[in-house]
Design a protein around this nucleic acid. Structure first.
Lengths: 205, 205
DNA sequence: GTCTATAATCAGATAGAC
DNA sequence: GTCTATCTGATTATAGAC
């Protein structure tokens, strides 16, 4: 039996897959650094080390490129959340998720989307992987939020959805960069401060 | 005596000034709506109702245009802060400033800058009016923050600069839009929730 | 200063050979 | 699928008449 053809095909596919991973990683970093509007497709191609036309064989538009990066980070969030202990205190798991978000952002791995870009929003909303991930994350966090409110850990007067949004907003909190720019604090200190004020507020206790 | 020339000049200058005000107002709104990158000079000219070339007689670049809007909002912030009662509790004044920021943003009047745009940053840093305003605001808020920490109202374990940054970050907090999009809450409720969680945190008390 | 018309450039996307 | 070369349209900025 001659297995060469199938092996060759598989190898080729692996290479293609690896290239796509490299592309998405580059897009992810550029989205984190400068955002969707400022990121150019030329730049992505140059940093990946391939021709721009080749990019368009993998992804049909700049929006699809960004969406792929967003799906990636959503998947990572899902993995992280699923790996958390199901029997832990809901509040502890929520704090862990927020901490994870802040750490990813501080590491420069959190792609940032423009607040209002209709074409990109449309692409994301049409992306089943992204929307499924978003729903899954929202449902899991939502359940913990309600449990934490019921057990008297989180403020029960706030709508759960508001708390959820406040968590999501940590993914684009500029305070992290502001503090890092000052150069006075370690990343761990910065994360601790922002995490602490998120849950405990600014007031003295 | 013939006063016609001087009157005519003054009137002309008033018209020019009014036009500049209209331009800046338009830029302010567009910056709030879509941000610097997505805003186009054509759009500004069209909405003001003048030719694009005329815009460039008033402002030498798109960056200068944006900077003018930023100077405007900074001046308004200064006015608001200066009008606050100097003998009030520092914490009360700080809450008032944060509330004002949230209300301006919710009203669609808070211009939003891209996190990292080198050319725009350079223009802003080179703009004396902007930097002076920023320093003034920072100094005044900084003094209140330290006073509130000393009096046991704000958490004294946090660096004052971190608290200041957290206040500044309310000017681009996406939670406001998120909550408004849901359509379940009034603007006043939204402001109250975000203001409350900023100072009191998410935890139950 | 305002206008129309146009330059100059840049960025997203594609054609077509290999 | 990858490349070079190119198209197309949008966008910043300016020339020059009035």
């Amino acid at each position: 039996m001659n297995l060469a053809p199938v092996i060759k095909t598989s190898f080729k596919q692996q290479m293609l897959k690896a290239r796509e991973v490299a592309i998405i990683a580059t897009v992810n970093r550029l989205l984190a650094e400068k955002g969707f509007e400022a990121m150019t497709v030329d730049e992505v191609a140059a940093q990946v080390g391939i021709a721009k036309a080749s990019l368009y064989k993998h992804f049909s538009s700049k929006e699809e490129l960004a969406a792929a990066a967003m799906v990636g980070v959503m998947r990572r969030a899902q993995s992280y959340i699923r790996a958390l202990p199901p029997n832990a205190k809901p509040l502890d798991n929520l704090r862990a998720v927020v901490r994870w978000t802040l750490e990813v952002k501080l590491a420069g791995d959190m792609p940032s989307l423009p607040s209002q870009n209709s074409t990109l929003r449309a692409t994301l909303i049409a992306n089943k992987d992204y929307m499924d991930g978003l729903m899954d994350v929202s449902d899991r966090l939502g359940a913990w939020i309600e449990a934490a409110q019921a057990s008297g850990d989180l403020n029960p007067d706030l709508p759960a959805i508001a708390i959820l949004y406040i968590f999501f907003a940590r993914a684009c909190d500029p305070v992290l960069e502001f503090l890092r720019m000052g150069g006075l604090y370690t990343d761990e200190q910065i994360v601790s401060m922002v995490l602490g004020t998120c849950f405990e507020g600014l007031n003295a206790r």
